[in-house]
Design a protein around this nucleic acid. Structure first.
Lengths: 251, 251
DNA sequence: GAGTGGTCTAGACCACAAC
DNA sequence: TTGTGGTCTAGACCACTCC
């Protein structure tokens, strides 16, 4: 652009230029951006100005940067669909848990690291489960991987007296914890989910290999039998990688 | 703190200090933060360093800044619950649309600006509605306000041949567009919603009085009768102000 | 060892709000 | 008019990656 218009805000202009180049495919996914120094030279601005433009693009999820290695255009990430099927009894009977169900229909591979322990319920968990504060609960702490990238954290709580057999094992067996609950005679009637958007704390960012402040989806799922809440699961997902599906009757 | 430990990252330290002061109530909501110059002096750093710390807090939603006026601690924002009730026929019969239903149960006031027009469906909309590309659709474009702050954008599309009577008016009447569809004999059977996280573009940011890059909730809601999709609504919500509620049967 | 992005200093100009 | 936050320049040091 030889006849560049009057420069309004160099930061915005540089960000817009790079964004356009990425979207036009001139900078394809995986390709390396010019270095900070090169861009500063090209646009005739200070390096800090270029830095701000690149920070903006990073916040938009368009690029990633690593000190020493450079800045690269991010490829379109595979979208992980959390379908309404994931809670179906049919899938449980087929031996798949919720995460595995989504993986199966989405064509990605699922893997989890699980830690199991018991602790006393704090006020929040007690409230969700409808039990007393300080009552014993089984805690199942999970990091879930899609194609070997960590994409979801989940901490599940069950009243200790319900958590028998494989429920207290790291591997809860085919169909997961909901299948074990039903094996034990706790027939599930419905699930309740609340969805919020949050931002990654430092520890969440470390676990999900992202940066603090990244948008997250925070779900609270409660599993009900006819008489009580038998489990609550606090789920944290990489916000921009998931698509949640729900269905509701018109009545 | 006289015996301050070795300074690791001034930006993080200052942000953590201010965050702690806000959370401890030493800087209550509405109160003004010390100026950039004052903080730079206090911490013995450059003003740019303080600026970065404040930018971080702004991204976390803790403060707002206005040039000339100062930086202020934001009050806790009212959380807007989008309950599963919002799609119930009972609420429609009571004369409330989806947004008004949430307002009614949440205790906030709802208001909308509506624009209505017809256009030809693009591939995306045609796909959602199961009609042909280029077919005429009625478009209802809305900005929705909670307590007079814009919090949600919604663009609703209906196949033109279904959009009779008040559906084509800015005020679609009590119970909203779904009530009119049922009046016209299109009995709704179920809704389907997909939820994703996105970031505000510049125009979305302007409409929602926020900054580009702010996390948003993007919903696609399709209303079904027994035989077809009669409406699709592309909804954009301020991510951090909404909580979505869903319920699913265990089967 | 050369080059990268992350972070910091020191100083500056601006539009704007408040007085 | 004074001070605010928003933005920019110019220069620097660092840990780190890659060769």
């Amino acid at each position: 652009m030889r006849d560049m218009a009057v420069r309004r805000r160099p930061t915005h202009e540089i960000a817009a230029d790079l964004r356009a180049a990425i979207e036009a495919g001139e900078l394809p996914p995986g390709s390396r951006l010019p270095s900070r120094a090169a861009l500063a030279e090209r646009y005739g601005v200070a390096e800090l100005t270029v830095t701000h433009a690149m920070t903006q693009l990073r916040h938009e999820g368009l690029i990633t940067s690593r000190a020493g290695a450079g800045s690269y255009v991010r490829g379109p990430q595979q979208l992980l669909r959390a379908s309404r099927l994931r809670l179906s009894r049919a899938e449980r009977v087929a031996g798949r848990g919720t995460f595995a169900t989504d993986a199966h229909s989405g064509g990605w591979t699922a893997r989890s690291d699980v830690e199991v322990r018991t602790e006393r319920a704090d006020a929040t968990v007690a409230g969700y489960l409808g039990i007393g504060e300080g009552d014993e609960v089984l805690v199942r702490d999970r990091v879930m991987y899609a194609d070997d990238e960590p994409v979801q954290l989940a901490t599940s709580y069950l009243p200790a007296e319900l958590a028998t057999g494989a429920m207290a094992e790291p591997d809860s067996g085919p169909g997961g914890i909901y299948a074990r609950l039903e094996d034990a005679g706790h027939v599930l009637t419905h699930y309740e989910e609340t969805v919020r958007v949050g931002r990654a704390t430092e520890s969440e960012a470390a676990a999900l290999r992202t940066t603090p402040g990244t948008p997250l989806l925070r779900l609270v799922r409660r599993a009900h039998t006819a008489t009580r809440v038998v489990e609550v699961n606090l789920i944290t997902m990489l916000g921009e990688r998931f698509e949640l599906h729900y269905e509701a009757p018109a009545e």
